[in-house]
Write a protein that binds this DNA or RNA. Structure first.
Length: 317
DNA sequence: CGGGTTTGACCTGCGC
DNA sequence: GCGCAGGTCAAACCCG
């Protein structure tokens, strides 16, 4: 697998009740066939390679097994009814189905200039040399500088889209905003966040789709090397949304499978059919419509917090 | 006072 | 080489 093909795109929708009316929920509004080879999306790049699809797990572990995820969601490679969109970014983020294309290769740098630790350290060093002539070799942040010629390693990334009124969705981890930039051709800025846990280099970018302002595009980069902050574990209620960071596919569709809603939270679903899956908890209700049209209504987020930690442990082993 | 946010400056990569 | 856009830094600021 090439370095430049390790990013992912995930599409979900979240109906949020930010004002506490109790009506919250999310839906995997997958308007495209992510696992489909015969994809007909107008936004799909020409000559799109279906092998570029891979599971979250694959994305994070560096392996590529396209069929695994397809199986996991009961899809044949040409299934017209995708349940989950997991897509590598091939140097771009593409909304394969909706109107919210994310700068399709307008500048590959948007997806390839990651791992700022390397460059930024260089930047820091240079700045320090400029600004502090006392040759301070300190720099609490620039401690792991790399050689100049060394090529930056790209962290695996995946992006997903969420329908939400708030930009920064709670995902159980603590984030520190370190930047905000205006996005070309978009009235909405892009925010940059870093995980505040020490030694954790996970970053995420949050921006709104300029074509559909109700859609928030979140791009995760890297993997958390620590558990969910304890102070937040018991606080998963209240409309929190767990974006998917990893999928642990089942051996077969008839079995339970786990969708990890990251960074670490997991929902456990039971596959109910080719085009639907059902949460095992009674806290949620799900229509029998095809999944990509379904809206999972979670009426009791308190239950969610019970589910998440246990599922996480399950995946941890 | 500690931790998070804001924001202008600065850097890098890329296309022309 | 230049300009543009994305990404990051870090001082100033804010807030509990």
């Amino acid at each position: 697998m090439s370095d430049e093909a390790r990013d992912f795109y995930y599409h979900a929708q979240f109906q949020e009740d930010r004002y506490g009316t109790g009506a919250t929920g999310f839906s995997f509004s997958l308007n495209n066939s992510p696992l489909s080879i015969s994809n007909s999306s107008p936004h799909e790049p020409q000559g799109f390679d279906p092998s570029s699809y891979m599971s979250f797990t694959d994305s994070l572990n560096g392996s590529s097994d396209y069929n695994t995820l397809a199986k996991a969601f009961g899809l044949s490679p040409s299934s017209p009814e995708p349940l989950l969109e997991v897509k590598r970014e091939q140097n771009l983020v593409v909304d394969a189905g909706s109107e919210t294309a994310v700068t399709p290769n307008s500048s590959a740098s948007s997806s390839s200039t990651e791992a700022g630790d390397d460059d930024s350290n260089k930047v820091k060093r240079e700045r320090q040399q400029k600004e502090s002539a006392d040759g301070g070799e300190s720099s609490k942040k620039g401690s792991k500088a790399k050689k100049k010629g060394e090529k930056r390693e790209k962290e695996p990334r995946f992006a997903f889209m969420t329908k939400s009124e708030v930009d920064h969705l709670e995902d159980g981890y603590r984030w520190r905003k370190y930047g905000q930039k205006a996005v070309k051709n978009s009235p909405f800025p892009r925010s940059y966040y870093r995980c505040t846990t020490q030694k954790c280099t996970v970053k995420k970018r949050v921006e709104r789709s300029y074509q559909d302002p109700t859609v928030v595009i979140t791009t995760y980069e890297g993997q958390h090397n620590h558990p969910l902050p304890a102070t937040l574990r018991g606080n998963l209620g209240g409309g929190m949304f767990m974006p998917p960071s990893m999928v642990a596919p089942p051996a077969s569709f008839s079995q339970d499978y786990i969708v990890q809603m990251p960074p670490s939270a997991v929902y456990n679903y039971h596959a109910g059919g080719m085009n639907s899956f059902y949460p095992q908890t009674s806290s949620a209700t799900l229509s029998t419509a095809p999944l990509h049209h379904q809206q999972l209504q979670i009426s009791d987020y308190g239950l969610l917090q019970d589910i998440v930690p246990s599922m996480f442990l399950k995946l941890e082993q």
